[in-house]
Design a protein around this nucleic acid. Structure first.
Lengths: 146, 146
DNA sequence: TGACTTAGTTCGTGATACCAACTACTTTAG
DNA sequence: CTAAAGTAGTTGGTATCACGAACTAAGTCA
């Protein structure tokens, strides 16, 4: 008897992998973040602010969170000296958020630690396979044109 | 001039992909879960209980959470009729947790919806590439022998 | 039997997240 | 050029999630 992996099987296997990967990576991020008193959300915040100075509403879009949630998030981050709010000249209502020096330093540290913590995982693949996964995951994550 | 992608570049690219994938998948899970009033943690709980009836302490291990956190989690899930606590005959202290019929039905529904929500992602890859990613991710997630 | 150990729960606290209501600026209509 | 409508962010109230410390009940063992 020949066992045939159907297209549905394949999809399901891949889906399981993706979910497993998501949790495994999230676990790493949570652990590294916790060492610096950073929640997963705060970690994402630092990541986003690394190369942007968005307004609150844009930040809410990036994070897929309510504006009110972001307000509280930035409140706490600001209290800790990680970010700064600044008013914009063109619109008296809107607020721009940026990393402070301390926040930028922390972001760099954490990024390095995350890389270190993920290395044991990626090290299980040969360089060729790493390239392959990179190519395919990147393709998968690419937004399809609307 | 020839641009060479070094091994470090490759690792970093792959790391970025993994983090992106983690967030993208988590976003899908959060969205699908929210439609059924399930947090990411509750979603994981249902997934774990699909083929297990662990004791509280084992559950805490699976979820990598404190026992006290799991207590509250199960409290709420039990109130909603999704899981049941049962005492074990061999040890009067320990408690076994299992899905209720309602919980099992919900788990199946949600699983199907997650598959549906992830399909647009996986559909961007050819079946061969899906197989490839599956193979490589599975290898990456495999525990290295201690 | 009495002293440890173990399994779960309870309690208090803080972070995260939502929604609804609010304030303060901008824009637009008349 | 003002009054109405809209927009950006904040505030306040509530529920969940997560932790650690202290507790209860049940098992172990000396």
């Amino acid at each position: 008897m020949v066992i045939v992996a159907t297209s549905a099987d394949l999809r399901r296997d891949l889906m399981d992998d993706l979910v497993q990967t998501s949790f495994a990576v999230a676990a790493v991020l949570t652990r590294v973040g916790a060492a610096h008193d950073l929640s997963l959300t705060l970690l994402r915040l630092l990541g986003i602010l690394r190369d942007r100075q968005p307004k609150m509403a844009e930040l809410a879009d990036y994070l897929v969170l309510e504006k009110s949630t972001v307000s509280g998030l930035i409140d706490r981050a600001e209290t800790r000296g990680l970010v700064q709010r600044s008013t914009t000249p063109e619109d008296g209502r809107s607020v721009r958020v940026g990393l402070s020096t301390k926040g930028r330093r922390l972001a760099r540290t954490v990024e390095a630690e995350i890389a270190g913590a993920l290395a044991p995982l990626t090290a299980r693949l040969t360089p060729q396979d790493q390239r392959q996964v990179h190519t395919l995951l990147a393709r998968m994550l690419t937004e399809t044109a609307p």
